[in-house]
């Protein structure tokens, strides 16, 4: 195969790490944002956030070829973002569980900062994947971070609306934060998509262009409208916020799954010049699958 083909090295298990790790770390961050307004409410969200991150890492463990050597993942924090992610998780999970057991702002806020670092590591893992053009773009970092933050906010809204978080009143600052996160994801998505033009194989571009409309409408416009409705009509806020949270969460997960599994065409091969061959003349280069 000369033209870019879909990468088959990472499957749904690897995608699961980005899906659950992003949502989990985002949820811990959203919990920290909501904490000043609802100090009693953080426990369940923190536990769920930690479990999601652990689930993502467990999926990666199932993916690696030599699972009994998993400890070797810690050997290269000097240059490898996968190592850094693992080290960050080692700090993040106990810290989050400690915050769950002893719910104080003094533990939740540091946990949120480490969660943000974890999210950043995930973004850098993709950015460093030089063989996959859609992943290695500069804008991938911001997009993965804002996606994780948005998923976390959506999940927090869902937990609130379904009563899994014991909150006395609707945290308006969190709603504002959720809207800002959704807006941030939209902005980084547009920027990233623009960056892909000419910098990614046509097949990858096609996958993302096809996905763009539903991602923008279902994952951004609709959730924001629903949040505004919930704010204006408190009587129906629970159900509306639950739907909004689900849309935000699932759209983010769908995007990441597509990014890892469907829009992940590898670089492919290219030559700058075709050779002269005997008495002939050299010709123009070839880069199949890029135009």
């Amino acid at each position: 195969m000369i033209a870019p083909s879909l990468q088959k090295y990472w499957d749904g298990r690897a995608a699961g790490n980005f899906v659950f790790g992003g949502a989990g770390s985002g949820l811990i961050i959203s919990t920290a944002i909501a904490t000043p307004f609802n100090t009693a409410s953080m426990s369940a969200a923190l536990l769920i956030g930690a479990c999601l991150i652990a689930l993502g890492l467990l999926l990666v463990w199932f993916e690696i070829g030599r699972p009994l050597r998993f400890i070797n993942v810690l050997r290269n924090p000097y240059t490898s973002w996968m190592s850094r992610e693992a080290w960050t998780a080692i700090v993040l999970l106990p810290l989050t569980l400690a915050a769950f057991a002893l719910p104080t702002r003094g533990l939740v806020i540091p946990a949120a900062f480490v969660a943000l670092l974890f999210l950043y590591c995930q973004a850098r893992i993709l950015r460093a994947s030089a063989g996959v053009p859609t992943w290695r773009q500069r804008g991938t970092m911001a997009l993965i971070v804002t996606t994780g933050l948005t998923e976390g906010a959506g999940l927090y809204l869902l937990l609130y609306a379904t009563g899994l978080i014991d909150v006395l009143s609707l945290p308006i600052p969190l709603l504002i934060t959720a809207v800002l996160f959704i807006g941030g994801r939209y902005a980084t998505w547009r920027s990233w998509l623009h960056e892909l033009q000419g910098n990614a194989p046509t097949e990858s571009l096609s996958v993302m262009r096809t996905f763009a409309k539903q991602f923008i409408v279902v994952g951004h416009l609709l959730p924001i409208v629903l949040i505004v409705v919930a704010w204006l009509i408190p009587a129906i806020s629970d159900i509306v916020l639950a739907v909004s949270g689900v849309l935000v969460l699932l759209s983010g997960w769908t995007f990441k799954t597509r990014l890892i599994l469907s829009a992940s065409h590898i670089q492919g091969f290219a030559i700058e010049h075709t050779p002269a061959r005997g008495g002939g003349r050299s010709g123009p280069g070839v880069k199949p699958g890029w135009s």
Partner: peptide, 22 residues
């Protein structure tokens, strides 16, 4: 003996030079 088979190097290589067999 050190490699854990995570496949990260495979997505990082732009030349499709790496393989993993089970």
């Amino acid at each position: 003996d050190l490699c854990i088979g995570c496949g990260y190097c495979m997505v990082a290589c732009p030349y499709q030079a790496r393989f993993k067999v089970t």
